[in-house]
Nucleic acid binder design. Structure first.
Lengths: 155, 155
DNA sequence: ACGCGGGCTTGCATCACGCAACTCGTCCTC
DNA sequence: GAGGACGAGTTGCGTGATGCAAGCCCGCGT
C-alpha cells in the first residue's frame, strides 16, 4: 500500500487513508459492497488494470478488509471491517450527489428492510444533530501519544 | 487531478474521488477544517512535498473546494462545498478509530456549541437508524443515464 | 541597499499506474 | 487425451505522478 506514508499526521483518518486511500481502493470496496462483486473478473468492469487490481485485492486481504473464500479460494469477500467502510462510501456519495451531480443522484442507497432512503448524518451525542461542519472541533483523545499532545499545547 | 479517470463507474462516489481521491487531498482538507490551516506553510507540517502541495491547492481552487483569500491573496479558505467534506473525514476517522487505533482514538471530534462528542451515522428516513451496512442496497436514481439503467437491467 | 522569511517553481530520480501480452490451471468438448 | 475456452492472475515496458533538494521571486524590516 502506501507504506506508512502519512506518519506526520496523528489521526485515524490518516491511518485509514493508508489502507483505502490509494487509487481505485474505495471503488473496489463499493463494488463489493453494493454490486455484489466477489470474483476477480467482477471488478474488471471498473476499468482498472489487472495488475493494479491484483495488488489492491492482495493489499485488502493483508489489511483484513477482505478475505478469500469460495470453494476454489478465488472469491474475495469483505470482512466485517471492510463492510463498515460503507459509511465512508455513503459520505463520499452524498457529497458527490450534492456538488457534482446536476441531474440528481445517479445512485441512491436504500434500506433493505423497509425501503426507506438512507442518508448519512453527523450526530452530537448530547444535543442531537450537527448541521454545520463549522461547529466541529478536533481535540486530542486517549490514543494521542503524550509527547505529541505536549508539543501541540506548547506550540 | 485525475482527469475523469473513473468514467466507468456512474456514481457520485467516483466523481467525488476524482476531486478528493488523490494522495494527500483529504489530509489537506482535514488540516484546513480542524487545524485551522490557511497558508501554504501551514500545510507543510503534513510532510507533503511543496510541489505536490501547490498542485493540490490549485486543484482545490479549480474544483471550488477552496478559494484564495486574505489581504495578499495567499490564504486558502475552504468554501462551503469544501467544509461539507467534514462528513467524509469524520467517517474515515471513525473507521480508523475502530480498526486501526488499538490505544483509542488519537483525535476526537466535539460539537463546539455543547461540547458533546460527534459521530457519524447512517440514517433511514422511514425507520430510523441503520445499524448494519449489509442492510443497504444501491438502486438507480434520477441522475442515472437512461441507457445505462437499461443496460444494467438487461444484464 | 541588504538580508530574511514565506510562497512557490524547477530539475531530476524514483515509484506507481495503464496497457498489452503472456502464463497457468481447470473445465469442456471432441 | 488433444484441443480449445475461460478465469485468474503475472510480466514487461512506457508514461505520468510523487519525493526531495535547490533555486527564484517578492514584500518587509533595517
Amino acid at each position: 500500500m502506501l507504506g506508512r506514508t502519512y506518519d506526520a499526521e496523528v489521526c485515524s483518518a490518516a491511518r485509514a487513508l493508508e489502507v483505502v486511500g490509494e487509487r481505485w481502493s474505495l471503488l473496489i470496496v463499493r463494488k463489493a459492497l453494493f454490486a455484489g462483486a466477489r470474483r476477480f473478473g467482477d471488478f474488471r468492469s471498473l476499468g482498472i488494470a489487472t495488475n493494479v487490481l491484483a495488488k489492491r485485492l492482495d493489499g485488502f486481504v493483508d489489511a483484513g478488509i477482505m478475505e478469500r473464500t469460495g470453494p476454489d479460494g478465488a472469491e474475495y469477500a469483505l470482512t466485517e471491517q471492510g463492510r463498515e467502510l460503507a459509511t465512508v462510501v455513503v459520505a463520499l456519495t452524498a457529497w458527490g450527489d450534492r456538488h457534482l451531480a446536476p441531474d440528481g443522484p445517479p445512485v441512491l442507497y436504500m434500506h433493505a428492510g423497509c425501503g426507506g432512503s438512507v442518508a448519512q448524518r453527523l450526530v452530537c451525542d448530547t444535543c442531537g444533530e450537527v448541521n454545520d461542519p463549522a461547529e466541529l472541533r478536533a481535540v486530542p483523545g486517549p490514543g494521542m501519544p503524550a509527547e505529541i499532545a505536549a508539543r501541540m499545547s506548547a506550540s
